[in-house]
C-alpha cells in the first residue's frame, strides 16, 4: 500500500502530529514553548534539521541496504546526522551570520532531538521514496512547529492567569499538551474517508 503525498503531509502534520500523537521531540517542546519569540525560530530550525536528517537517512539507507550492513544503520544515522547538522551550523555561521544568529543557538539542542532521528527511522520503516521522505520530514517539522506555537500561545496567556500553585510548572505544560493532543484527535482518520 502506498500513501499519497497529501496523506503523508496531513498525517504527519495533524493526525499523527510528531509531538502530540507520536511523542517525538518532547524535550524541546516542554522546554522552549514558554515564549512565542523563541517558539517560532525553534520550530523553523527543527524543521530544517529534520529535512537535513531526512536527506541523510535516505542516502544512508540506500548505502546500508546495498551493502547489507543493516546492523550499522542506527550508528550511521546518528553519526552522520549529528555531523551534518554541525556542518550546516558551520556553513551558516560563515555565510549567513544573520540566519545563524536566529537559528544557531537552537541547532546544537536539536542535533540529538528524537524528532530528528524519528524522521529518519520512520521514513526507513515505512519505505518512503525520496519525495515521500521529504514530504514527511517537512510535515513533521511543520507539525512540530504548530504544536510549539499553540503551546507557546497558551502558556503566554496562562502567565497572566491565577494557575493554582500545585499545577505550576511542568505539570501544567503536560496537562496542556494532553488537551492539545485531545484536540488533535479530531483529525484522526484524516483522508481515510475517501
Amino acid at each position: 500500500m502506498s500513501e499519497t503525498l497529501p496523506q503523508i503531509f496531513f498525517g504527519a502534520l495533524l493526525a499523527n502530529n510528531f509531538v502530540l500523537a507520536m511523542f517525538l521531540g518532547l524535550c524541546p517542546f516542554l522546554g522552549v514553548s514558554g515564549r512565542l519569540d523563541t517558539a517560532l525560530p525553534m520550530g523553523a530550525a527543527t524543521t530544517f534539521v529534520m529535512l537535513v536528517a531526512s536527506l541523510c537517512a535516505f542516502g544512508l539507507n540506500w548505502l546500508v541496504t546495498t551493502f547489507h550492513l543493516e546492523f550499522l544503520r542506527l550508528i550511521a544515522y546518528i553519526v552522520v546526522i549529528a555531523s551534518a547538522v554541525q556542518l550546516v551550523e558551520m556553513v551558516l555561521k560563515k555565510h549567513s551570520p544573520a540566519l545563524f544568529r536566529a537559528l544557531g543557538i537552537y541547532l546544537p539542542l536539536i542535533t540529538t532531538n528524537c524528532a530528528v532521528l524519528g524522521v529518519a527511522l520512520f521514513q526507513t520503516a515505512r519505505e518512503y521514496d525520496f519525495i515521500q521522505a521529504l514530504t514527511f520530514a517537512t510535515a513533521g517539522g511543520a507539525g512540530f512547529s504548530l504544536a510549539l506555537l499553540l503551546m507557546a500561545g497558551l502558556r503566554e496567556r496562562l502567565q497572566l492567569a491565577n494557575v493554582p500553585n500545585v499545577v505550576q510548572g511542568t505539570a501544567l505544560v503536560l496537562m496542556l499538551a494532553g488537551l492539545l493532543s485531545l484536540i488533535f484527535m479530531g483529525f484522526a482518520g484524516l483522508g481515510a474517508g475517501e
Binding site: 500500500m1 500513501e3 496523506q7 482518520g189
Partner: peptide, 9 residues
C-alpha cells in the same frame, strides 16, 4: 493486505 484505517494502517 494493508490499507489506511481510521487511526493508522
Amino acid at each position: 493486505g494493508a490499507a489506511r484505517g481510521y487511526a493508522d494502517t
